[in-house]
């Protein structure tokens, strides 16, 4: 799935598209199927709102524990707030916030750490 996001012009707040309006919580965002042209249509509308939002774009989501979460860490942090301080959207709590906090990584990699084998 996908969601449409932007930053609000007046204060920079991260916002998500919901039925022609902008909402502040990712959990309230409209979700678009990857092949649903409604995503691009919403993005087109948003790009015509230069005094409302800055740089709207569609983000990719992935399923995690039965809920949808942004695939990239960047988008998760935008949806949550910074990880070093309890600031931003995460302070609202709730199931979606909780799911975002615990979603696993898309790369599912443990990294390449055993490249040199000792005899």
């Amino acid at each position: 799935m996908r969601a449409l996001t932007a930053n609000r012009l007046t204060d920079g707040e991260v916002v998500f598209w919901r039925k022609g309006q902008w909402v502040e919580q990712f959990g309230d965002a409209d979700l678009f199927a990857p092949d649903d042209p409604a995503g691009e249509a919403a993005e087109g509308h948003a790009k015509n709102q230069p005094t409302v939002v800055v740089e709207p774009y569609l983000i990719d989501l992935m399923e995690s524990a039965g809920l949808w979460a942004p695939q990239s860490y960047r988008e998760r942090i935008r949806a949550l707030g910074p990880s070093n301080l309890p600031h931003g959207k995460q302070t609202e709590g709730g199931a979606t916030i909780d799911a975002l906090l615990h979603a696993h990584g898309a790369a599912r990699s443990t990294g390449r750490v055993d490249l040199i084998k000792r005899k």
Binding site: Q71, Y73, A106
Partner: peptide, 8 residues
């Protein structure tokens, strides 16, 4: 660095 949206 970013690999598939994840941090390395």
């Amino acid at each position: 660095v970013d690999k598939k949206g994840e941090e390395f």
